[in-house]
């Protein structure tokens, strides 16, 4: 593992390539994460984590680009994680969110990493949480995460971000309808993007009505902000709202609560994955198949089988 130690050391001292490699290692193999995370964990917890979600093509990447400029003007260091879907048919992906962020490509204080979901549901990739930690340990002041184009169930961003921005766009029919309850509930800030096209006011009204129906966030009124992903106008207001929300989180103590919930999610996730991996180490794919056949032909029921398996599983739980 000494090459890992070397990489971690380089990363912490600011080597961008080492950071890139560490992210790949954690993305490809969870035992790498189990080695790396314990060695960087105490360097994390400093960055403000901002999530951006919304329907495909609503302008998430364009808004990220504008926000990065705002942060850079204030001299803050930025990490971006841009997630695109993996094709369920081929397992491949085209990661193109970056295209909208060209102006930051050569800024040494902006690190952009594209990730594919690799079959993960929920709008993030499995390694997103650990990638956030790597960027945090690297010294980023803010980490912006762009989820895959989301509909209603891709709400995992709320588990990793301090501040969630939900992007919607004015459109012909019921624009907000397409966002549905799930995703509306996770928004701390609402951006109505493409505010240059018709129907903005109607869209804002719809969001406002939707918010009135849903549960209130204690002490925080979700602002609705017009943005233009294709010009600089509006980005500043969004930027101010993000800072305002961060301030609210810190002052209200919600920050602390969120962190505890996040810690719990992490624990449960790691344990789950550990269990599944050990399960397949203990019981081979073939044996699993044999057992499944018994269930299928009604020779045994699943609970009966589990009863028999438990002694073998005990050694790792």
């Amino acid at each position: 593992m000494s090459s890992f130690d070397e990489l971690i050391k380089s990363m912490i001292s600011g080597d961008r390539r080492a950071l890139g490699k560490i992210i790949t290692l954690m993305e490809n193999d969870s035992s790498s994460s189990a080695y790396i995370i314990p060695r960087i964990h105490n360097l994390t917890g400093n960055a403000h984590i901002v999530g951006i979600t919304g329907p495909p093509g609503s302008g998430k990447s364009s808004i990220v680009d504008k926000l990065v400029s705002c942060y850079r003007k204030d001299g803050l260091k930025v990490g971006v994680i841009a997630i695109d879907p993996t094709s369920p048919f081929t397992g491949g992906a085209i990661l193109g969110d970056r295209i909208r962020m060209k102006q930051h490509y050569t800024d040494r204080d902006v690190f952009i990493r594209s990730m594919a979901t690799r079959g993960n549901l929920g709008g993030l990739s499995e390694a997103t949480g650990n990638t956030i930690k790597a960027l945090d340990a690297f010294g980023k002041d803010v980490i912006i995460i762009e989820t895959v184009g989301a509909g209603q169930v891709e709400v995992d961003i709320v588990k990793v971000a301090d501040t969630v921005i939900v992007v919607s766009v004015p459109s012909m029919g019921d624009s907000v309808q397409t966002l549905k309850a799930g995703i509306m509930e996770i928004g701390d800030i609402f951006a109505v993007n493409k505010a240059d096209i018709e129907g903005v006011e109607k869209c804002i009204l719809e969001i406002r009505m939707m918010l009135e129906l849903s549960e209130k966030k204690e002490g925080w009124i979700q602002p609705i902000i017009k943005t233009y992903g294709n010009k600089d106008e509006g980005a500043n207001k969004l930027y101010e709202a993000i800072k305002e929300h961060n301030k609210y989180l810190i002052e209200s103590g919600h920050n602390e609560k969120k962190r505890i919930i996040r810690g719990k999610t992490e624990l449960v996730n790691i344990l789950q994955n550990l269990f599944i991996r050990n399960l397949y180490k203990t019981i081979s794919e073939e044996e699993m198949e044999e057992l499944a056949k018994k269930i299928a032909n009604r020779e045994k029921d699943p609970y009966m089988i589990i009863e028999e398996l438990i002694p073998r599983l005990k050694k790792f739980v």
């Binding site: 993996t86 094709s87 081929t90 397992g91 491949g92 992906a93 085209i94 990661l95 193109g96 970056r98 295209i99 060209k102 490509y105 594209s114 594919a116």
Partner: peptide
């Protein structure tokens, strides 16, 4: 992509 690779297009 269709061959299962992750392509970063800039």
């Amino acid at each position: 992509r269709d061959a299962g690779m992750e392509v970063i297009y800039t």
